[in-house]
Amino acid sequence: MRLEGKVAIIFGAGQLEGRTVGNGKAVALMFAREGAKVFCVDINKAGAQETVAAIRAEGGTAEAFEADVTDEDTVVAAVRTAYELWGSIDILHNNVGVSIAAGDATITDITIESFDRVMAINLRGMVLTIKHVLPIMRKQGSGSIINISSAAAFNNYPYVGYKTSKAAVVALSNHVAIRNAEYGVRCNVILPGLLNTPTAVENRVKKFGLSFEEVVAQRDKEVPLRRKMGTAWDIAYAATFLASEEASFITGVSLPVDGGQSQQIGRQPSPAEVAEEKKAAEAAAATVA
C-alpha cells in the first residue's frame, strides 16, 4: 500500500483493443492496488471505463472521465473534477502519446498536419495537464508528476514527429522539476523501450500487414536483455516507485525502462550473430555443468 491515501490522475488510462495490456491501464491498476484513488482520463471514455471496471473488480477506487489533451477546456474540466471529487491531486501521470496512428513519418515524407498533430498530443498535451495540476500541488506543498517519454528520444527511431516530441518531453520534465522543487513537487520521466503493448504492436500489424507473431519476433530480437520485449507492467512498477514516498528525494530523473537498449553503442548484432552467441553461451554452460 505504497500509495495509500493518495489521489492520482492519469491521462491516457484507457487502451487500444489488443492481446496485451497497455501502459496507461497497467499503471492505473498498479496505483489502485497500492492504495491510490485513481481518476482515469482518456479521449475514449469507454476505454477509461473499462480500466475503472477492472480496478473496482479488485476492490479499488476509481472514476472515469473523457478528455482530449489537445483541448485545454477538457483538460481543465478533468483536473477540476478530480480535485472536487477527492480534495487533492498527489500524482499526475502523463501517458498520452501517438506516432504511426497520427501519420508520423520520416522527415522527408512527413506532412505539416501530421507533425503538428503528433506534437500537439505528445508534447503540448503534457504542458497543458501540468499547467493545470501544478497550482494544486504547489498549494499542497507536495506532488509527483510522471511523464512518459520514449527510448526513441535517444535511439535510431525513424519517424521525426515522435522522436522530436519525446526528446522534448525530457526537457519539459527537467524544466518542471527544477522550477518546482521549492514547492515540494517532483517531476520525473520514464523512457520505455520496446514493449509488447497494443499501441506498439497492433498498430504495426495494421500498418505493415504483418502477423502479430511477426511483429513481436522482430521487436524481441532488438532487445539486449533476454531478447524479449518488456510489458506495460514494467512501466507500471517504475511509475509506482516514482510516485511513492520511496522516491521522495528523486526529481528531474530520466529513467530508461528498456532492457538495456539505451546502452547499445555502434552496430547492432544480426539475428545470426545473436543465435551464434546464444549457442556458444549454452555450450559453455554445459561444459561448466
Score class of each variant (00 low, 15 high):
L128M: 14
N174Q: 15
D116F: 00
S99C: 15
S99N: 15
S114W: 00
H175E: 12
V169N: 04
G161D: 08
T106V: 06
I130G: 10
K131V: 07
I89Y: 03
N94F: 10
S149Y: 03
N122F: 07
G141N: 06
V98S: 12
H132N: 10
D104R: 13
I89F: 02
V118Y: 06
P158F: 03
I89M: 09
I148T: 15
V176G: 06
F115E: 06
V118D: 04
S88L: 00
G184K: 11
V133E: 06
L134M: 14
N180E: 03
F154T: 13
N122Y: 06
V127L: 15
A120W: 01
V127H: 14
I112H: 10
R138T: 06
N180A: 07
C187N: 15
G141S: 09
I146F: 05
A171D: 10
I107C: 07
L172K: 03
G141M: 02
G125L: 07
K139V: 07
I146H: 09
Y183M: 06
T106Q: 04
I146K: 09
I146S: 10
I100Q: 09
A167D: 04
L134Y: 06
I145H: 03
F154A: 06
G97S: 13
A120I: 00
V169P: 06
A177I: 13
V127M: 15
K139S: 14
V133G: 09
R124T: 14
G143M: 02
I148N: 12
A151L: 14
S149I: 01
G184C: 09
A153E: 05
P135I: 02
L92R: 06
V170L: 13
T164V: 09
M119W: 12
N156D: 14
V160S: 07
G184D: 07
A101D: 12
K131F: 07
V96R: 08
F115L: 15
N174W: 12
S142V: 10
G184H: 09
V185A: 13
I136L: 14
N94P: 10
M137A: 10
T111V: 11
V160T: 11
Y159R: 08
S99I: 02
G125V: 05
V160N: 02
V176F: 08
R138Q: 15
G125D: 04
T111R: 11
